[in-house]
């Protein structure tokens, strides 16, 4: 792995070296490294690109890293990764994709389709980070799709982010929750220049006692455009909350569409959406602490997208 690939690995998965536990590192369309453990198996699919990650029932305090890095200009790929998480697990999954096509002339594109099948009473923490860099001649494109099925009592916490560098993205998340299942989503997007990002998160709550909390935060700078669609359908006695909070700067445009559909009289669904520029009082406060206006702005955005 060269210096650029190592740099991308650090950006998307905070890895300086190979991680502890199970991992599969995909680099420029090929398997670069893989490790399995007694409880976590990783198998290459034979019908399409991608892997199956199989986690044995009862696996606790283990992690899986599956970063993808692309440093080859012009590479385009669609990858299917399926996660089968047995009953009573407690695991952390770190995914992410980094593209660097500096100096290249062809667009680079990665479409990752991740499906999670989480069995009864399991707990999954999923961290996904998308990152891009380059000199602007070749585009960097990512279209991640995340499918989540939570069985009875399962809990999934998703922390997903795309902090700059991706020219065009369509981020789709579809989740189905069983009885007493819980889904927490914290999604963050920063767009700059003339980048375009669309996030479409749809949650179907099928079982009684289910709950979901979706928090989406976006910052659109310069001429960039963001569209955020948050939809919750309550088909049972459940609680759903969706919050979409965005900061617009320069000539940025944000379209936020929260949508709630209650199909059961016991469904309790709430949405909140707010779009605005950084408040003058916030800038003033940080300036009274010695930061310049630009530093204050950066600090506010950094905190907002934490």
């Amino acid at each position: 792995m060269d210096a650029m690939q190592k740099h991308l690995l650090k950006e998307v998965a905070a890895l300086d070296a190979l991680p502890v536990g199970a991992y599969n590192i995909r680099s420029n369309g090929e398997k670069a490294a893989r490790n399995t453990t007694a409880n976590i198996d990783i198998v290459t699919k034979d019908d399409k690109p991608g892997i199956d990650i199989i986690i044995k029932p009862g696996t606790k305090n283990e992690s899986v890293h599956i970063p993808v890095i692309i440093s080859q200009s012009g590479l385009k790929e669609v990858v299917y990764n399926d996660f089968f998480i047995g009953e009573d697990c407690d695991v952390t999954i770190v995914a992410g994709c980094g593209i660097s096509n500096c100096g290249g002339i062809g667009d680079s594109r990665h479409d990752g389709i991740h499906s999670f099948f989480v069995k009864k009473n399991s707990k999954v923490r999923y961290i996904e980070k998308h990152y891009g860099e380059g000199d602007g001649r070749a585009k960097r494109l990512m279209n991640p799709t995340t499918v989540v099925e939570l069985e009875e009592g399962a809990v999934m916490e998703m922390d997903t982010s795309q902090i700059g560098g991706i020219d065009d993205t369509l981020r789709v998340t579809k989740a189905k929750l069983g009885e007493n299942a819980t889904l927490l989503i914290h999604d963050k997007i920063l767009t700059d220049g003339d980048q375009k990002a669309t996030a479409d998160i749809q949650v179907d709550m099928e079982g009684d006692g289910g709950s979901c909390d979706i928090i989406s935060r976006g910052v659109a700078k310069n001429e960039s455009y963001q569209e955020v669609i948050l939809g919750i359908t309550g088909n049972a006695a459940c609680n759903g909350h969706a919050e979409c909070d965005s900061i617009i700067m320069d000539n940025g445009v944000i379209l936020a569409t929260p949508a709630l559909k209650a199909m059961n009289v016991e469904a309790s669904l709430i949405h909140e959406a707010a779009i605005g520029k950084i408040a003058g009082d916030q800038l003033n406060k940080l300036m009274t602490l010695g930061l310049s206006e630009k530093e204050a702005e950066e600090r506010i955005i950094q905190g907002f997208l934490r």
């Binding site: 916030q282 009274t288 310049s292 506010i300």
Partner: peptide, 30 residues
């Protein structure tokens, strides 16, 4: 404002400002 702050003026707002995402620790560090 910031240059005055760096010269040695501090100011406690009558109505403190809310920040989404910034913590007490962050502002105390600043």
């Amino acid at each position: 404002i910031n240059e005055r702050a760096n010269l040695g003026i501090s100011y406690a707002f009558q109505q403190p400002v809310h920040f989404k995402g910034l913590r007490v620790r962050d502002l105390l560090e600043l």
